[in-house]
């Protein structure tokens, strides 16, 4: 079933505000379009957020990896591209943060999908 994928950022045991905004936008879009909302969280302690994210998303994909203490663009790109290739989401939402700016453009080139940044409004 088609879905919208939200990349969740976290730092110091807290989900980044920007990701909460992404999730609420995602929820709104998926309700309108009747599609699923998948939250993906990567890095050390990813699992601990599963419950909190479940409040927003239909499904949570946590990629545990003690190696990945902080969010690092390069490894995250490999993981995300694999997930996206597999699940072929309609849309991927990511915070236009320092992490997002380091990751999104590379991901867009790797997957050959168009990218729009610094958005203040999204509609399907």
């Amino acid at each position: 079933m088609p879905e919208i994928l939200v990349v969740v950022e976290h730092r110091k045991q807290r989900v980044a505000d920007i990701s909460l905004q992404m999730l609420s936008k995602g929820r709104q879009l998926t309700d309108e379009a009747g599609v699923g909302l998948l939250a993906v969280v990567i890095g050390g302690g990813a699992g601990t957020y599963a419950e909190e994210l479940a409040g927003w998303a239909d499904g949570v994909l946590a990629v545990e990896d003690p190696e990945l203490a902080g969010p690092l663009a390069e490894p995250s790109q490999k993981i995300l591209s694999a997930i996206i290739k597999e699940r072929k989401p309609l849309l991927v939402l990511m915070g236009h943060s320092s992490f997002g700016m380091d990751l999104a453009p590379a991901l867009s080139v790797e997957l050959g999908v168009p990218l729009v940044t610094d958005c203040t409004g999204v509609s399907l």
């Binding site: 663009a73 390069e74 236009h96 320092s98 700016m101 380091d102 990751l103 999104a104 453009p105 590379a106 867009s108 080139v109 790797e110 990218l115 940044t117 610094d118």
Partner: peptide, 21 residues
């Protein structure tokens, strides 16, 4: 336009490591 995409895209195309900001 403030896209903030160009550099990282070029890096990916060249296949070289990159860092933003």
């Amino acid at each position: 336009f403030g896209c903030g995409q160009l550099g990282v895209m070029v890096a990916e195309m060249l296949g070289v490591p990159h860092a933003a900001l």
